[in-house]
């Protein structure tokens, strides 16, 4: 669409339709966030007014800071960042190694491994929660960062490997590997000095996927982590949910929810260009 035809009624209509569609899409995607903002900023008595006000009568900006004093939000964020960062690093590292192993000379059994990776996705997590809990308990990993990070790595690995394997297949042709071997590079050397540098977009894409899982997972984390000092933010948010299961501090909940969304949004804003190129070259074709 870089060479536009001359101005015509038809193109104007098409343009307007496209803009209209885009507008509809954005309203659908973003209205919940609008509601999150206005709820956080409403004065106390107005939150549960019915019918609701679509726009706060006054903006109470202090609502955004109050929860940071009432709840250890900073701590939860630090924990989430820590857990997420480790998950991403380990996942991409282990995943890339495995994917590299799988593309080398069309490794025998690669097909079997793919099947195996798929198999891990088939059973719903809710079935395995209790056995997994007992298993983690026996390993002494309950309530530890290690246990949570390893679980997340295990859950993201299959997708990471599938994604990276496909990326490597495209980005790292057999000739390149042969050349590296003739140079006398060992496996790890080739991996670090040749493969990784040319695969950055693929690695970033894989990192983005594991970032998302680690950042927003809550079911397992809430059963496994109880220590306040180690809770990630997705579990910490549940401090605001009371005995009856309902949100007890609505304004505070929304304020923290806003804060949860921002770092993830920034991360994606920065890396989104690379995700697209990381998935190129048929990376998603398996």
């Amino acid at each position: 669409m870089n060479k536009k035809p001359a101005f015509s009624v038809q193109t104007v209509t098409v343009k307007m339709l496209i803009w209209f569609a885009l507008l509809l899409f954005l309203i659908f995607a973003l209205f919940p966030y609008y509601w999150m903002f206005v709820t956080a900023l409403k004065p106390r008595g107005e939150i549960f007014q019915s019918p609701p006000t679509l726009f706060p009568s006054t903006f109470v900006w202090t609502n955004l800071t109050i929860p940071w004093r009432q709840f250890p939000v900073a701590q939860y964020f630090a924990n989430s960042l820590f857990i997420t960062a480790w998950t991403v690093v380990l996942d991409v590292l282990v995943g890339a190694l495995a994917a590299y192993g799988m593309i080398r000379r069309r490794l025998r059994g690669a097909k079997l491994i793919i099947f195996f990776l798929l198999f891990t996705q088939l059973l719903p997590g809710a079935v395995t929660i209790a056995p997994f809990y007992f298993w983690m308990k026996n390993l002494g990993m309950l309530n530890t960062y290690t246990g949570l990070i390893l679980s997340y790595v295990a859950w993201t690995l299959p997708f990471t490997i599938l994604l990276l394997r496909a990326y490597f297949l495209e980005a790292f042709p057999q000739e390149l590997e042969d050349a590296a071997r003739i140079d006398g590079s060992g496996r790890l050397r080739t991996f670090i000095s040749v493969l990784l540098p040319i695969s950055v977009p693929g690695l970033v894409a894989a990192a983005a996927f594991s970032f998302i899982l680690a950042w927003k997972e809550f079911l397992w984390a809430s059963i496994m982590i109880t220590t306040g000092a180690r809770k990630p933010i997705s579990v910490g948010l549940r401090d605001l949910i009371g005995e009856g299961g309902g949100v007890q501090y609505m304004s505070e909940f929304m304020a923290i929810a806003i804060a949860t969304t921002i770092p993830a949004f920034l991360f994606f804003f920065i890396v989104q260009r690379y995700i697209a190129s990381g998935l190129t070259a048929g990376a998603v074709k398996g």
């Binding site: 998302i212 993830a264 994606f268």
Partner: peptide
């Protein structure tokens, strides 16, 4: 695009309440 990604990165605990 980054705004379009938002629903993907928001924890379910949050968006279900909304």
């Amino acid at each position: 695009r980054a705004l379009g990604y938002l629903p993907w990165i928001t924890p379910a605990v949050v968006f279900v309440v909304i």
